[in-house]
Amino acid sequence: MSKTTDLADASAKPTPLKSKLPARLDFWQSATGLFLALFMWLHMFFVASILLGKDAMYTVAKFFEGYHFFGQPYPILVTIAAAGVFAVLIAHAGLAMRKFPANYRQYSTFRRHMKSLRHDDTNLWFIQVFTGFAMFFMVSIHLYIMMTQPHTIDPYGSGDRMVTDWMWPLYLLLLLAVELHASIGLYRLAVKWGWFEGKDAQATRRRLKQAKWAVTVFFLVLGLATLAAYIKVGLDNRDNYGQRYVPSWERQTQAPTPQALIPAAQSAAPDTTAPSVVDSAVEVDAPLASDAVVEPSGQDVGTD
């Protein structure tokens, strides 16, 4: 007596008739986002090594250039890594863009909806769209520098980039965008795929939301402190622009008299009053004389 019209094939259907592409795109949007967000967390910690001292940051930078594996640094490794991240980023941006308002009508409808509804998660999405859009430009600049000048990644190079190269405003904005975008994105991934749901999905969601804000604040504080540290290095090192960093242990063995160093070519007035006694040094064997740089795997931040 049950309804049977058109049902004959319903149970036996082996594959859907519909394209599988939407499923794949959705999956990869989330997967690339997850990768970028997690990458950004690690990245932030690596970059923040400057807070432990220049040597720490230098070590991290060299680590990513393969120094600890090959006995000497290969900045090309950083280029390759940055290129990989760039590729993921482009993929993520392309996938996420599908969800952006496609025209002004959609944009204004959404804005009106958002203002009327006053709904937290809806507002957060708009922040994501906004920060994501902004990051297209900012992250591209950052990653391009990382790819082309990987050898300049060290405490001085990065400090110079902030101050003398006038990158700090970009990095400040990028930091804000990345931290907001990534933590909101992770929160959304969790509710989107039902991670950690447990018995009471709404209680979990409230906790996730709290965790999201905690993570945002943590990384913003860490990021601002790190940024400040690089700016300080950059300011201190302003007169020695282009100078490569020499870690303290090499200084002791190879360069006992810091003052004597001839920094890189263009530094007309060598810094005679090294700011901090211990590591105001300069390095000796800069691999290439003329470059300025940044940190290890890219002080950039994020992507996602």
């Binding site: 519909k18 509710v191 989107k192 969601r205």
Partner: peptide, 18 residues
């Protein structure tokens, strides 16, 4: 999947949770 497997269905949802 044939009914909701696209961006007008499940994959259109952006999890805004309104």
């Amino acid at each position: 999947y044939d009914l909701i497997g696209d961006d007008d269905g499940i994959f259109g949802c952006m999890s805004l949770l309104g």
